[in-house]
Computed example of a mutant assay.
Amino acid sequence: MVKKLLGSPLATKVIGGVLRDKLDESHWRKVLESNLLDDNYIHSILRLSYIFLPNPLQNCFAFCCKFPQYHLFNRDDLLQMWISLDFIQPPQGMTMEDFGGRYFDVLLKKALFDKVKYDCIVRDDYKMHDLIHESASKFFAQECVEALDDERSFLEISETLRHLSVLNAQPYILRKIEKFKHLHSLFLFYKASDEDNEFSPE
């Protein structure tokens, strides 16, 4: 299996997160024999980590792919967004925050997020590796998209889209958003003021 990971530390760390889920031969052999490992392409290898995620975790992680590359995720803020979108269904006796925290910790152990280290301040911020962001955004493109402020990018977006973010959106672009009838969340990012707005349509 190591020979198929192209000598990439990132691929090795991510596939290690897939393998640690089940320490049995059948699971490891299933990963080893996956066609994606034979593609000799880093993005194909990374896709394995998304494919093996349970559905609830896939929803949580896919949602994160609509944020711009190098976006800093605050753990508590992200948990509240997952909760508001009904991604978290805790068992009896556990709060949504605690159960959502377990979801986040699983994604962290699978190396899909990295904690941001600061020199002088303590903050609970995390980021997604640029290769993971790129490959995951393509993998979940039918559900979650980060769009640029131009008409062509909107023409290429599936109408089944559930989560959308737009960078520097202008009014004429916002009018095009009404075609997405299945949209659950919309984020507007404005670089000039470093300000973002969130709307959650019904």
Rank of each mutant, 00 (worst) to 15 (best):
V14Y: 01
I15F: 01
G16Y: 10
G16K: 02
G17I: 00
G17C: 08
V18K: 01
V18L: 06
L19N: 09
R20W: 10
D21A: 05
K22A: 01
L23D: 08
D24A: 00
E25L: 13
E25M: 09
S26E: 12
H27C: 05
H27E: 11
W28A: 15
R29Q: 13
K30H: 06
V31P: 11
V31W: 05
V31R: 08
L32S: 13
L32F: 14
E33R: 10
E33F: 04
E33D: 09
S34C: 00
S34R: 02
N35H: 13
N35T: 14
N35P: 11
L36C: 05
L37C: 04
L37A: 02
L37F: 06
L37I: 11
D39Y: 11
N40Y: 15
I42R: 02
H43V: 08
H43E: 15
S44D: 09
S44W: 00
I45K: 02
L46G: 05
R47H: 06
L48D: 06
L48M: 12
S49Y: 03
S49M: 07
Y50V: 08
Y50K: 08
F52L: 12
L53G: 03
P54A: 03
N55Q: 11
N55G: 00
N55E: 14
P56S: 00
L57T: 11
Q58P: 02
C60S: 14
F61P: 10
A62N: 08
F63D: 01
F63T: 07
C64P: 07
C65A: 09
K66S: 03
F67Q: 12
F67D: 10
F67H: 15
Q69P: 07
Q69D: 14
Y70I: 00
Y70F: 14
Y70K: 14
F73M: 04
F73A: 04
N74R: 05
N74C: 08
N74F: 00
R75I: 08
R75E: 10
R75D: 09
R75M: 09
D76M: 01
D76R: 06
D76T: 03
D77G: 06
D77P: 00
D77N: 13
L78I: 14
L78N: 08
L79T: 10
L79K: 12
W82Q: 06
I83K: 03
I83N: 07
I83T: 02
S84L: 05
S84G: 03
S84I: 02
S84H: 10
D86A: 10
D86T: 05
F87N: 04
F87M: 15
Q89Y: 10
Q89T: 15
Q89G: 08
P90R: 02
Q92V: 00
G93E: 08
G93I: 02
M94D: 01
M94N: 07
M96Y: 09
M96R: 03
M96W: 03
F99P: 13
G100Q: 07
G101R: 03
Y103G: 03
Y103I: 03
Y103A: 01
Y103F: 12
F104H: 09
F104T: 07
D105V: 09
V106D: 05
L108I: 14
L108K: 12
K109D: 14
A111N: 15
A111Q: 12
A111F: 14
L112C: 05
L112S: 04
L112V: 12
L112I: 10
F113S: 11
F113A: 10
D114I: 01
D114A: 08
K115Q: 14
K115L: 07
K115S: 13
